[in-house]
Structures are given as structure tokens and as C-alpha cells.
């Protein structure tokens, strides 16, 4: 790759440039030099590999990878917009057999009649909201392509209450006495077996729903009854089932899969 003939890098217009060399020895010297530099340059990718391998791990990933993923997240925040919507489809395109993928947070029993959504915010008393109260808010439906981080996708039909509407109604998310929003929303199942952290702009995206219906029927247990999150700007892993509590915060809430080596943001 590197060579000594730097002065001859300029290309002639039509034909490759020819140069007389007086001896085989000169040619051999130039060849050897180029190959020596080539071998030396080969140390670069090798060292890079080694350097990545010895990086301290941060939640399962080399630290430098976490830093790049953070940059990717900032880049993504740069073009994120509420005007960018997940494509939606006619109702009869929605699948009847909605795929279930993972039962973390759903392994314990639940009394759905006694269930209340617990809402917390710094400096306030926790608030309990019943499903009927949520159902009294305007209903929003979405039929879109749900995307799993594993790579599969499925057109699914969900119904519930728009998250931004919900936050507005209960005056959540904004810091007391100011317009500023808390940067994150955390959610977890009643047993704490599954938990997610979401950046507030994604939670407030117009297609984010607190869903209580699937295919026009109440949610089944395995799909997260009585209430789950549907957030089309994220992979399935963030679409928490069986929401127990929800809170806004300044700190990044813990995230089940981010603790297991996945990117925290996973925005779509």
C-alpha cells in the first residue's frame, strides 16, 4: 500500500505512466520497501482488534463500543422527528396470531381487578390510575409493522391511549413550574422482572400508545394484560408488557436488555 514513488502519483490522462528503471536491483528495492510498509500497516488492524478485546466491559460491551453507540444515539436524535411516522396498514392486514416473544416480568400471578398503574415523579406523591380511568381518555388505534430486535416483523393491530395525551391529562413529565421535560421515562412490570428506559421524545412520539386492546379485544395475559406499551419508534424489547409502574426521571432508568449487552437507545 505505501510506496516510495509518491512523486509519481499523478495519473496521466490516458495511459498508465511508464518509467525506465536502470536495474533489477532498483525494482527489487522498491518492491521490498513497499511490502515492508504493507506488513507494518497490517499491524494497525491487528492492534485495533487487540485494543477492542482488552477494553473494559460496560454492560457486556467494550467501553469504546458503548461510546460509539452513544454517538449513534445523538446522531439519531438529530433527525428524529414527530413528523416521521411508522407506516400504517389497513386493518385486515394485521395478523391474527400475534407472536409472543419472552415472558420476563410475566411469570408471577396478577390480579387484574386489583391492578392500578402506579405513576411516580420526583417530588410528587405516587399516583394510582385504574384501567377504567385510562379507557375514559380518547382511544387511539395503530396497525403497523412491529419489529423485533431479532429481525422478524409482523403487522399488528393495537388500541389504547396516546401516551402524550396521557402525560398531558395527568400533567406528567414536565418539571414543576417549567416547560422542561424530564429526559427519560422508566417502566417496569409489577414484579420488577422486566424494565425499560425510554427517552422522553420517543415516548411522546404521536404513535406511542399505552395499549389495552389487541385486534379489538382486551389484551391477553401473554401480550401484556392489562396494559402494555406500544412504541413504534423502538424495537419490540422496549414495548413493555403488563406495566406496573411508570416514572419520569433525570437519570437513565435501568433497562433489561441494555444490561445484557444491547444498545440502550434501539430507536427505529
Amino acid at each position: 500500500m505505501a510506496t516510495v514513488d509518491d512523486t509519481e502519483e499523478k495519473l496521466p490522462e490516458k495511459k498508465p505512466h511508464r518509467e525506465e528503471l536502470t536495474s533489477d536491483q532498483q525494482i527489487r528495492r522498491r518492491t521490498l520497501k513497499a511490502f515492508a510498509l504493507f506488513g507494518l500497516a497490517g499491524v494497525i488492524p491487528f492492534s485495533l482488534w487487540k485494543w477492542i478485546k482488552i477494553q473494559p466491559k460496560e454492560a457486556g460491551l467494550p467501553k469504546v463500543f458503548r461510546e460509539v453507540l452513544k454517538v449513534n444515539e445523538e446522531v439519531a436524535n438529530g433527525y428524529f422527528s414527530n413528523a416521521n411516522l411508522a407506516p400504517t396498514f389497513p386493518k385486515d392486514w394485521a395478523v391474527k396470531n400475534v407472536r409472543v416473544n419472552g415472558r420476563d416480568g410475566l411469570r408471577s400471578a396478577i390480579d387484574k381487578d386489583a391492578w392500578r398503574l402506579k405513576v411516580e415523579q420526583p417530588g410528587r406523591k405516587a399516583r394510582l390510575i385504574s384501567l377504567d380511568e385510562l379507557k375514559a381518555l380518547p382511544r387511539q388505534e395503530i396497525i403497523y409493522e412491529f419489529k423485533c430486535i431479532e429481525g422478524w416483523s409482523q403487522i399488528q393491530h393495537w388500541g389504547g391511549v396516546n401516551f402524550a395525551e396521557f402525560a398531558k391529562k395527568y400533567q406528567l413529565g414536565q418539571k414543576d413550574g417549567s416547560e422542561a421535560w424530564y429526559p427519560y421515562v422508566g417502566m417496569k412490570t409489577p414484579d420488577g422482572g422486566y424494565y425499560v428506559g425510554i427517552d422522553t421524545p420517543s415516548a411522546l412520539h404521536p404513535q406511542t400508545i399505552l395499549a389495552y386492546e389487541m385486534n379489538d379485544q382486551p389484551l391477553t395475559d401473554l401480550h401484556g394484560a392489562p396494559l402494555r406499551l406500544i412504541i413504534p419508534v423502538k424495537y419490540g424489547v422496549k414495548n413493555l408488557k403488563r406495566i406496573g409502574s411508570l416514572w419520569f426521571s433525570d437519570e437513565r432508568p435501568r433497562d433489561f436488555w441494555a444490561e445484557r449487552g444491547y444498545d440502550y437507545h434501539v430507536g427505529l
Partner: peptide, 16 residues
Amino acid sequence: MKRIVHKHPLAIRWFH
């Protein structure tokens, strides 16, 4: 006597 023919510029070799 031999001649050398310049074929791949340095930049192309790096990219490759």
C-alpha cells in the same frame, strides 16, 4: 532493461 508501469495510485491501494 525493464520498465515499471504505474498502475494503482497510493490512495486506491489504501482504500482497497
